Simulated scan of single mutants.
Amino acid sequence: MKEEQIIRELAEEAISENNSLFLVDVKVKGNTGNQKVLVFVDGDEGISIDECSRISRKIGSELEEADFFSGKYTLEVSSPGLDFPITLHRQYMKNVGRILDVEMTTGTKEEGELLEVNNDAIVLKGKKENRSLKFEEIKQSKVKVSFK
């Protein structure tokens, strides 16, 4: 979608001054005149509310200046949250040491501590032996939330 690509470029520009930040996803939902723009940004050490606010102001002012949306819209800039799937190599790197639930393209599920991230695979700690899972075989990964 063209809208999402333009907003993605604005978001990349807004985070460019902080090398520890990276763009995870951009979604535009709703109908013309009542749209919701969701921008998900993360950082190698997380992201603060102040940083999200700064990015939101920058993107918002660019959208207003360009009169990008006809009608009203809502812009939300936030971190992806724990229930959001891990999609980027950099997100995997950030989560080394955490327990992942991994759904494979075959439909099988894997769970284990993320030990290592390579260019083409991740390594999960297994009960008997460690397992290497290629990115191309992973449908979705999520950090397992533990309330111990």
Rank of each mutant, 00 (worst) to 15 (best):
M1L: 07
M1F: 07
K2I: 11
E3N: 15
E3W: 06
E3L: 09
E4N: 07
E4R: 08
Q5R: 13
Q5L: 14
R8D: 08
R8I: 03
L10D: 06
E12D: 09
E12A: 13
E12V: 11
I15P: 00
S16M: 09
S16P: 04
S16K: 14
N18R: 10
N19E: 15
L21A: 02
L23H: 00
V26P: 04
N34L: 06
V39T: 07
D42R: 00
G43I: 00
D44T: 07
G46Q: 06
S48H: 02
D50S: 10
I59F: 00
S61E: 15
S61I: 08
E62F: 10
L63Y: 05
E64I: 06
E64Q: 11
E65C: 04
F69R: 04
S70I: 12
T74K: 13
L75D: 03
V77M: 01
V77K: 00
S78W: 05
S78F: 05
S79Q: 08
P80G: 05
G81E: 03
P85F: 05
I86C: 04
I86Q: 06
I86H: 07
I86W: 05
L88P: 00
H89A: 05
Q91Y: 02
Y92F: 15
M93N: 08
K94I: 03
N95H: 15
D101Y: 08
T106E: 12
E111S: 13
N118F: 11
N119H: 10
N119I: 03
N119T: 11
D120R: 12
V123L: 11
K127W: 02
N130D: 15
R131I: 11
L133H: 01
L133Y: 06
L133Q: 02
K134V: 13
K134E: 11
K134S: 11
E136A: 14
K139F: 10
Q140S: 14
S141Y: 03
K142L: 13
K142H: 10
S146K: 13
S146Q: 13
